[in-house]
Design a protein around this nucleic acid. Structure first.
Lengths: 219, 219, 219, 219
DNA sequence: AATGAATGAGCGTTCATTCAT
DNA sequence: GATGAATGAACGCTCATTCAT
């Protein structure tokens, strides 16, 4: 078990990620179906209160089938997180590559992160809340995709500092973490609150204004 | 059980809060000892992975004793959160009352929240991480001390807007939530990271700079 | 868990053996009740087909209670075996001490082992059959009480060889193992067969005759 | 399932035994490969701890294939036992037919049984240990090949009694069971112990000496 | 009030078996 | 015949909570 886990955790090429049953058909139906079901269930009840059997039922598979694709309930959460964060990273990188102006990049970053969640309340809940439920996930996982994500944010800040668009008396790392927190906090209160589509859009715009001015140099 | 719970859930005056054993001695030794033990245990292993028996052991009491002071394991976490947030609120209100200048109030707010955690890594972990572990806590509790706390933050912003010190194109509520998130995010990464005493101090200062400028009006 | 196990496995004085709940009352009711229930259930269905809940039910305790006295289902079997073998060893040593004549000692040994089982069909089944069900038990356990037991048998043979009562062209160790096997085989077929009280008595007598003559020196 | 089982359980002539796939090729490759794999796996981990998938893997077939040749995991063990015991019986009968002298026959019996296992540690383990793991096997099976085997042993004894070579104050049945047990016990300790080739040879010789004298008539 | 042995509902996981391909 | 992904019943074990002392 631990062995298999190690293999899976390895930097297996993305083409093979998470594939347990060896001859996967085209679209990897089952695995994705399970992940989608897990989002719903985790969002509704939280990781710990969610039952593996509920996920199975929601995914329309047998309980045991989940263990053909994941090593454990924990692994489902981790995989979910990794999977979705990876998508977010790809989307962010693609979009940011199109935008050279630092302030506009900050705005884009904020809009994208909150925009991706807008209309996906469940995913927002899973990422902002459930991630914190598995201590193991948080501690040991804080170092992978999540750090990549923080680094991407930090680079947007430091790039702007180098080009003179942003003040340079602030640590890019600290700033990035604070920005992540701000976005996460908004997503959390939104997810726990109304979760209305569109609700995050205005907030995103305001937050962008705040941060762009906050990062602007003296004068 | 349910009955007792109802009574406790009522808006019992602070004078009676959390008191189960009827003849409270001076300082309510046991209850506080249990809460202190819970901080340690929850911080180390997370709420769900923590065992009631571990808390009991850490507090130097028998398992059953915990149920003389709390209704359930959940209640321990809720009480802990409520208790500590209350202290924080009191401290904040006291300090902010001394400071009339809006930008200085923002700085003070940030310094105080992060400062209180500095050197109390365990408490930081409990508040930032464990709070999110009990869905019930999050959902139903989002409305009590936590909202009071957010409102306090929002009032610092809106007061500044009214006095013309802060731009008024931002929602005070949104701004407050984002600030809470930023502080929470810093505390989280700090708690999960090194947790070195003093580490948060510099971050607090930078964050204050950022927000103060971010909130400043045009021109 | 593993830790506790280690402690229990240690050569803890007999006075403390297997006691988990710390303040044991007089007669260690529960633990013994569970062991007695386990004998019945294991004998009836075999170790693997026996359910922990069945043992609990037979013992009149809750499922969880079993885990207050034993670490696992495996541990119940091991403890049972160790416990009963120890009693047998004590009885054998006491009896053999009274008998100096080697042939008579062999006879006594056979009579005692089979006699103890006579009327305890269930125990016979557990010892002869179930012991072999836990590979771990067999392999790692083959070295403790069981070896003591074989050594006791071997010493009866080698003592007789030294005193000239028995032929000395046979290895005492091999002889002891074969005798154990013969006794075990009789017990097994008896347990699986009728299991009538008294059935083993005659067999014991005949087996004794056979072995005594088999061990006698030439001439 | 039950149906098929019934058919197979019937006293099907040896010519049809265990044949599931209808068009049996010459040497029934698969079935024998599975049995050989089962010996290895059962010997290593015991019947209950062995997984059908492990046997399949060791045999180089798919999991499902096993069910084309056997009705269940239990059936694999039973078939294995029956198969191997049959071979042993045939070998014993052939050899004993060549030897008219009762004491020599006893010696031959012992040598053959232990000799067949010598160098086949795995088979020894399966027969002596695993057989006892399936209660069903033991109980209902005690009546087939195994009884034939015991009867063969008993006949060697009773033949000797009739011809006056052996004492007649012993029950041939009891004696046979005890001898089986002795052989089994030696095989067991050998299998669990070193399992060195040749180790059983000397033991066989000594055991033969012991039994022959033990069975010899007075005077 | 305090204890801690006892409870028993509840769940993650395994694995023999099936069956569509 | 052969395959191996899918199934889902079954069970060992945990641990929050209770309650007799």
């Amino acid at each position: 078990m631990t062995e298999r886990r190690f293999i899976r955790r390895g930097e297996a090429g993305a083409s093979e990620r998470g594939a347990k049953p060896s001859s996967r058909k085209r679209t990897d139906d089952k695995r994705e179906r399970i992940l989608r079901a897990a989002v719903k269930v985790f969002a509704k009840k939280g990781f710990y209160a969610s039952r593996v059997s509920e996920i199975a039922k929601a995914a329309g598979v047998a309980d045991g089938t989940i263990y053909l694709y994941f090593d454990s309930k924990d692994d489902v959460l981790e995989s979910l997180f990794e999977d979705r964060t990876e998508r977010l990273l790809i989307a962010l990188r693609t979009e940011l590559a199109k935008e050279p102006d630092p302030p506009a990049r900050v705005r884009r970053l904020i809009e994208l992160q909150l925009g991706l969640l807008d209309g996906q309340r469940e995913l927002a809940e899973v990422i902002t809340i459930n991630l914190r439920q598995s201590t193991r996930l948080l501690r040991q996982y804080g170092s992978k995709r999540f750090l990549e994500y923080l680094e991407l944010m930090a680079s947007v800040v430091s790039d702007g500092q180098k080009s003179g668009h942003f003040r340079d008396d602030l640590s890019a790392r600290v700033t990035a973490r604070a920005l992540f927190g701000a976005l996460d906090g908004l997503a959390l209160t939104w997810a726990l609150g109304d979760g209305r589509t569109g609700g995050l859009e205005k907030a995103a715009s305001q937050l962008a204004e705040l941060w762009i001015r906050g990062l602007s140099p003296k004068g």
